[in-house]
Design a protein around this nucleic acid. Structure first.
Lengths: 337, 337
DNA sequence: CTGTTAGCGCGTTCAC
DNA sequence: GTGAACGCGCTAACAG
């Protein structure tokens, strides 16, 4: 056969002098007691010799399944989502599944037809960190029929979820700060319409309300260092300047560091700063950042586990992954002004 | 039909009262002058009503093409590869292609059969940052037949490549440092057997050799903050301590910062530090890092462009993307001891 | 133990 | 302008 096109199972059958079905059985690895060892080895050798590999498209068509799931994330540029993939891929691999990643289609890219995103043939979807604005159109119409699990997107109607215990995490931060003696809280909040950020804001407000003499100011920003620096700067410029900046994300905290430095405020002696997520950056900063560790890899792993259950016909229970307060060097009792 | 299984083109045909081929023509968008507008609209409405989407597996099998390419990277946890994906996806999308990501199979995971990595049906492969050790087995046997482009893996035999001008970048750093008056160079090198790191080491050595009275010490480490801190610490503990630490990666530079801080050395007054890549971290550090900006997104974009050319039958020319020296606050003339 | 047969859903001839 | 028939490569029944 020409070298230009790949050999098919028919070619292998011919080469080995058997029928296609025998080839299929041998390649499928389930010839135990159905094909003679001699014949099987002959087939394997023929396949090897020809460099044969089953055509996945044909296999998928016949089987109606691809053993592949799609992980959709808002972006791969943010440091948070790499580990999510890693966790998902680990679990998937151990069950003979593959994972492909896609990012949510951008603003401009009008999805042609319902759910144009994956060119892929997939068995299920892991949808991470969905924006609230997307729920209506996509989560319902988009996934149409495809088994899906939503990650880090808050409690949903009828689709299984895996979420972080962000409220508990934020409360832990706030209580840690209150115990240190802080009263004037500044919240540098992510300006994204996502469940997780709403939950963080709510939890922080709840705790501060119960702090005697407690006050809370809020500024919103993008999740990038420059924007966060601006927002933090606005907070620090006030006469009633907060003694602590509670940031919705470690990246935002990095911006807060820069704003503090720009005003000559020492961390943690004159200003405490906290982050959220505990990405790599948190320990690269000086001083190292007090933050809440969100088990991103575990999110991917648990999500995949739930999706696999779903594909197997079981209805997975909702999962909540606790965040853990990690106290490092960026928090201290407030400066006595 | 039952709600459990997705509608097929046959269902649409029946619903619209036409034949399958008519449906195929209309859905394919090429019914210009072959199907009456009235019929076409009827088909489209029927498809809409049923929520019909062509079965990708069947389409792939028939067409022999998937309009999907695979991007393989060493890891998604490192901050560098997100932008690579973004750039590749941007170009692919504009040509009607999709991108799926995979990481190189881990050490333990023995690839079953030749190239087990993608469960996917793909038209081509973008292989990024291959380790030299992998070349023999994978690059040759692995891609067997599949059109591939190698990214950031150095010049290859017969497969098209896109690389960074890392040697030029490293020379720019070294000359910048030499011009500031530095003589004692320390190289905190990544202990990975990749082309890019060999090229960096070579370029640095070349420049230092031509610096009058120049000396060069080298320590290797993993690409993570803790390991880099150790390696940098070993360099700083020497009697003939370098006046500058040239780091193979921004992450490594972050470790160098910590080592410096641990020894009470002020950056840049008592010690200069440089990075490589210019990831997000570079501007989050204090002082901001002097580094070489590697256009990661452009790497993905150019790689995809080359792969698309390859798929179209053209032989793409090798591409080299220049790195640009970005001088920030972490470099200064050496301290007069 | 092995070979023959049928059909997954689609796109594309070729008749009408 | 439209429909019937065929085959992509594979696997699962069923015969032998």
């Amino acid at each position: 056969m020409p070298a230009t096109s790949r050999p098919t199972s028919k070619d292998v059958a011919q080469e080995a002098g058997v029928s296609q079905s025998t080839v299929s059985l041998v390649m499928g690895g389930k010839w135990a007691g159905r094909v003679s060892p001699a014949t099987a080895r002959g087939v394997q050798e023929a396949a090897e010799r020809l460099g044969y590999r089953p055509n996945p498209a044909a296999r998928n068509l016949r089987l109606g399944t691809t053993r592949t799931v799609l992980l959709m994330v808002p972006t791969l540029t943010a440091p948070f989502f790499g580990p999510v993939y890693t966790g998902a891929a680990r679990v998937a691999t151990s069950h003979g599944f593959g994972v492909v990643v896609s990012t949510w289609p951008g603003e401009g890219a009008a999805p042609e037809g319902p759910f144009a995103a994956p060119h892929e043939t997939i068995d299920g979807i892991l949808a991470s960190s969905l924006e609230a604005a997307r729920f209506g159109d996509e989560a319902l119409a988009g996934f149409a029929g495809t088994p899906a699990v939503m990650l880090d997107s808050g409690p949903q109607g009828d689709v299984p979820t895996v979420d972080f215990g962000v409220a508990d995490g934020m409360r832990a931060i706030a209580r840690h700060l209150a115990a240190l003696g802080h009263r004037r809280f500044g919240h540098v909040a992510a300006g994204l319409d996502q469940w997780t950020f709403h939950a963080r804001a709510q939890a922080l407000a709840d705790v501060v309300r119960d702090v005697p003499g407690g006050s809370l100011l809020r500024e919103r920003c993008e999740i990038d260092v420059a924007s966060a620096k601006d927002a933090a700067g606005r907070l620090l410029a006030r006469r009633d300047r907060p003694s602590v900046l509670v940031c919705d994300d470690d990246l935002i905290a990095a911006g807060a560091y820069k704003a503090a430095r720009a005003r000559g405020l020492a961390i943690p002696d004159e200003l405490s700063v906290t982050g959220f997520d505990d990405v790599l950056l948190a320990t690269a900063l000086e001083p190292e950042l007090t933050t809440v560790r969100l088990p991103a890899e575990e999110l991917g792993a648990q999500g995949m586990t739930a999706l696999l259950e779903l594909l197997a016909g079981t209805r997975p229970h909702p999962r909540v992954l606790p965040g853990r307060l990690v106290v490092r060097g960026s928090t201290a009792p407030p400066h006595q002004a």
